[in-house]
Every structure is written in C-alpha cells, then in structure tokens.
Design a protein around this nucleic acid. Sequence first.
DNA 1: CCGCATCACTTGACTGAGCAAGTTTTACCT
DNA 2: AGGTAAAACTTGCTCAGTCAAGTGATGCGG
Lengths: 162, 162
Amino acid sequence: MTSPSESAPLDGAELETWSALATVLEWLPPVLDLQLEDGWDLTHFEFGILYALSTAEGRSLPMSTLAGYANSTLSRLSRAVVRLEKRDWVRRSTDPGDRRVTIAGLTDSGAEVVASAAPAHAALVRRLVFDSLSAEQAMTLREISRNIAAAISDEGGWRPGR
Amino acid sequence: MTSPSESAPLDGAELETWSALATVLEWLPPVLDLQLEDGWDLTHFEFGILYALSTAEGRSLPMSTLAGYANSTLSRLSRAVVRLEKRDWVRRSTDPGDRRVTIAGLTDSGAEVVASAAPAHAALVRRLVFDSLSAEQAMTLREISRNIAAAISDEGGWRPGR
DNA sequence: CCGCATCACTTGACTGAGCAAGTTTTACCT
DNA sequence: AGGTAAAACTTGCTCAGTCAAGTGATGCGG
C-alpha cells in the first residue's frame, strides 16, 4: 500500500492545481530575476547575498553563515562573492579569531546598491503576489508553503547547500 | 500613488508569507529534479520534452510546438533534443511538407522511459504537494497559482521562450 | 519568377552552477 | 606535544542555458 507505484495518478482537479503551480514555479523566479538583471545587472542570488549582508550585524558575515542564509553551497557562494568583490560591493577578509573562516563584508557602494534595489524588488513581489491575492488567500498561501516546505525537508532528507 | 517607490514595504505577515513561498520556489524544483536525475539521469526539462511527445499525436511534434509546450526557447530545446537523440530516446526528421521544420519523434525506448518515470514523478508530486494539503487548501492553491500566473502574464508582458 | 524579408531552427561564445579534489587552519585524542 | 581527522573555504572540470549570429527553406511583392 505504501509502494510508490501504487499511489493513484493525479486526478483531474489535482492535475489542474499542479499545472497551475508548476507554471508559477517556472515563471515567477525568472521574472523576479529579470528586474534585478535589467536594473542592476544582478542575479537574484547575488542580490540575496547583498541583502543578507545589509541586514547583518556590522554588515558582514562568515561565508558559511551567509551560505546558510542564501540556501547555497559554499562553492556557489564563493564564486558569487568573487564576482561581487570585482565590482567592489563586497570585500573579504579572514577572521583573525579563526583563520579558516573568511568574512564577507558589504562595502558602502554595495550598501547603496541594496538600498536602491530592495524597494523595487519588494514592490514587484507585491504586485505579482500580494496584489493578486485576498488577505485570506495570502494567509492560506503561508500555510500551504510551510506545509510543502516541511514535506520537502522530510522527503529523502534533501537540503540545499548541504 | 502608483509610483513603485511609494508602495509600502512588505509588512510582517507578508514577509513571512513571502519567505515561506520563496523557500518552496527554491527547493521544490530541485527535489523534483533530483529524482529524475538519480533514477533516469534526466533533467526535469528533458523529462518534460519526452512526456509532451508521449502524449502527442503520433508521438511526435514540430520543434516549435514542442518549445511552446515546454515553455522553452528553441535554442534550449534544440540542445536538449540533441542530448536525447544521443540516447536514442528521440529522433529528428525534417517535415516533408515544410523543410524548414524539424519534427521530433519519441522512439520506443523513449516511450519506455516515460512510462517508467512518469508514475514515480507523479507520486513524488503527490507526496510533496497534495499529501501536505487539505482538499480545501489544494483548491485554494489552484486559485492562488492562477492569480499569480495571470499577474505574471500582465506584468511587463514577459513570457518564457519568446 | 526574382529578390528580399521571414521563418525555423542550429551553433559558437560565454556565463553560472555542481561535483569532486585540493589547501590551509584548527580541534581532538592519547 | 604529535599525529590524524575535520572544518572552511577555493578551484578545476564539465555541463546546461542564454544571446547573438549563421544557415537553409519559404513566402510574397512587384
């Protein structure tokens, strides 16, 4: 009964739901990316890094902590930070306390970038997501998302960046 | 009033909703991919191509039509089909009626792959999405997804593959 | 029926992500 | 202390995706 091959195929309503969700899954991230790339030549991922740093104590974080916030591998993060460093938005230094860890810090120009990109990004999220939903739907969406995220965490123990 | 810089930043509840949704947006596609890659050494995108062909009249479609179904650029599709052809799961032929169009057709072994992967894939979708939701939540999710998808279509007129 | 725009791809150059292997520094065990 | 394991990145290799340019084939205006 628990064998995967025995679970019924998705029925009509489920298929429609899945298809609609799949559409969002496929389109939403690219549109969000597009704004940042057009306006600031930034990946959504790179923006996430800058944003995380901007909210951090002292505008700087160890790479591993940052990788956690950005749901990323250290490898991916490392390459992204190299790119950001080239633009002088981030600077790296090794932690004097533990010379294995390198601390990524936001520069002033990096902070300016975040300050100018973040409101536009939030506005786009509002337009695409919250403006299309009733307050009740938004609350339900939060529940739904949490449930699915929990299921993902359980399933196979998969986690990004680990 | 309609200037983007004037829209209020996301409030607490919205931020939580967005953060939960962003998690799903980031994690769900990779987990879905993982199964196909581990089990069949297939990208979700490649699977989509095979699946679309399997449901098509004569198990074959012109590249441009297929690109529409797969929400993809012709360029991306072309490369993917090259890969699938190397594994003898798809074969290309030029349409005798219009020698510009090339028709991608599913081979028998390709059909076998779809037949074996599709149920497992559907089962995973069920476990991750529908098993975590009440029937009512699932219905709401369909509404929500449609609304967001509609907002995306309106916004900036962006469309994948075009 | 000829020339040129257009269509339907394909391909070359480049970029970002993943995996695995390598480096340096620290922690632990005895 | 001394040696080994582990942590915290970084980097080489390879691959998929994008963008722009290239290649035939077709349609169409005069």
